[in-house]
């Protein structure tokens, strides 16, 4: 069953000088429960914009997004309700620096009256255990390393018990030696059956965990398929060129 169905998604930015920038030019795809989809492509191809449209961090210009059967682009959709069920992990972590790790995880569930503080604390403990940071529960974000911050950010996104997790280049801002610990956490999430959308430059990781690869170029899905199909037997010239550049090293 499709968790998210995207039909003919367009996104146009209007620049300050009035020119239009067409970032997404009609994307149609879907993600099923438990599926992991990795989105790859050159920078500026629109892959991050695509991901950010899924929970309307960016407003799509046209097209529809169905989440659990509800059209979330319609005017009478309560986007705040939808977002509770779509966790998002950002490139720059975006932890709340004025709150402890515990409060970072419990702010939303408690404020939205989904859990009591005690229940949320309990869940925070379990989630931090899962990302290997149980001892950091009362730490301030500033005192964590980049890798630890991103693991906390993943735990925070999980705190609302979402149906799907959106990862927007989660390892791009990390020191190389910290990428592994974050990918390990994501691998564990993937193995546990989490539905995941992942925009990434980590081709090896995408190959390993993804069920499907979307190659986005110039705002359209120019090639898609299993990791084997896309990485090992790409058909489109643009895909071949891109992969030859990123995999050469």
């Amino acid at each position: 069953m499709a968790v998210i169905e995207i039909k003919d998604l367009h996104k146009t930015f209007t620049l300050t000088d009035g020119r239009k920038l067409h970032v997404l030019n009609g994307i149609t795809t879907e993600i099923n429960k438990g599926e992991k989809i990795a989105v790859i492509g050159p920078s500026g191809s629109g892959k991050s914009t695509f991901l950010r449209c899924l929970n309307r961090m960016e407003e799509p210009t046209s097209g529809s997004i169905n989440f659990n059967g509800e059209d979330i682009t319609s005017n009478n959709c309560d986007i705040n309700k939808v977002r509770r069920k779509m966790g998002m992990v950002f490139q720059h972590f975006n932890l709340f620096p004025h709150l402890t790790v515990r409060k970072n995880l419990t702010l939303a569930p408690v404020d939205l009256k989904i859990m009591t503080q005690e229940a949320a604390d309990e869940r925070a403990k379990i989630l931090l255990e899962r990302v290997g940071l149980a001892d950091k529960i009362d730490e301030w974000p500033e005192r964590l390393s980049g890798g630890q911050k991103q693991r906390v950010a993943i735990a925070r996104a999980m705190a609302m018990n979402p149906d799907v997790l959106l990862f927007d280049e989660p390892t791009s801002a990390l020191d190389p030696e910290m990428i592994g610990e974050v990918l390990d956490v994501m691998k564990e999430l993937a193995d546990s059956g989490m539905t995941m959308y992942l925009v990434t430059h980590e081709m090896g990781f995408a190959h390993k965990i993804a069920d499907k690869i979307l190659f986005i170029d110039k705002g359209v899905i120019s090639e898609q398929g299993t990791p084997d199909e896309v990485f090992d037997h790409p058909k489109q010239p643009r895909t071949i060129e891109f992969l030859s550049k990123v995999l050469r090293h």
Binding site: N55, N80, N94, F96, A108, D111
Partner: peptide, 24 residues
């Protein structure tokens, strides 16, 4: 990014302002 992170958790604009942006 602070506002985005708060909104991505399902908090409203006002709550995000009050609990995340303004205290900072």
């Amino acid at each position: 990014g602070q506002m985005e992170a708060a909104r991505s958790l399902g908090l409203s604009y006002g709550t995000s302002m009050k609990r995340v942006v303004l205290p900072q």
